[in-house]
Design a protein around this nucleic acid. Structure first.
Lengths: 157, 157
DNA sequence: GTTGAAAAGTGCTGCGA
DNA sequence: TCGCAGCACTTTTCAAC
């Protein structure tokens, strides 16, 4: 049977269950079952299968960072002296809790990070004290987000 | 009473509840109550308060994009011809479902996007057909993520 | 694989302190 | 403001299809 895209062992029902829960993980299985016209037990079986397959990583409560005092989102292009210092730098940056994403990437930068800080003073402290002090990091370029216009999950359909 | 940081009207209990649920939204209130040595009802009241304050945006099921066939994460620096075209460009980019984040930002780029695609063919199609065709977008620079080393929420404590 | 219903666990509400 | 107890709802399991 030909599908539009190869989604491994997932059928349409799986994809639809994921699509619903990706936007709101608190929707009860019974309600999903009604919407997709299957029984609650089926939703449960499918979810369990997808958890075992490692497709589902877990669930997050999404908060508004600004409302808890974190006002600044910034992206950081990081230049490493040598590529071989990557693993060490990752371990160091894991200790910096303001770093919420870190990517090893192509292009001019060796690594690319997303960080969230309380204010400009906090940002400066993280950049100067925490990031720049990591061995192997040569220099960084900072892009500050003034507005987050889109923030969503991928659409599977 | 002096606190380490100003978290608006949140006390330590609120922060601890959020910290737990941000990492796993499926943990039952009763278990949180036991851990923090308060009643389940108290957790409920605090959560309701924070929902009304707009601190809690909702909850997401976190999936592994690679396991559902989305193998490429890329960041896009976008140059606009004129800053005034920002609002229009945002509306256009909202229609491109591969764009999962969009920021209005400082620095060389006018806007900064995160996109998730199935493969290189898909990425090329999104860049050439969907992104470049948006009126006002002059050119883009693409940074492809080869590995996501860190992916987490901010730590409130 | 799916169903439907029973059993176990959790969320919600109101009263009392 | 918090804690306790009862009710409603959800999740989980399982025999049968």
């Amino acid at each position: 049977m030909e599908k539009k895209h190869d989604n491994f062992d997932l059928d349409n029902l799986d994809i639809q269950i994921l699509s619903i829960l990706m936007n709101d993980a608190s929707i009860p299985y019974t309600e999903i079952a009604k919407k997709l016209i299957v029984s609650g037990g089926t939703i449960h079986v499918r979810m369990k299968k997808m958890e075992e397959m490692g497709i589902i990583r877990g669930s997050n409560l999404i908060i508004n960072p600004q409302k808890v005092g974190f006002d600044i989102t910034a992206f950081l292009g990081i230049y490493l002296e040598k590529g071989s210092q990557y693993n060490h730098a990752v371990e160091q940056l894991k200790q910096v809790k303001e770093v919420v994403e870190l990517h090893y990437c192509t292009g001019a930068y060796s690594m690319f990070a997303k960080i969230i800080c309380r204010d400009t003073t906090h940002l400066r402290k993280v950049l100067n004290e925490d990031i720049q002090s990591v061995k192997g990091i040569q220099r960084t370029e900072t892009i500050i987000s003034l507005e987050e216009s889109i923030k969503r999950q991928i659409s599977l359909t």
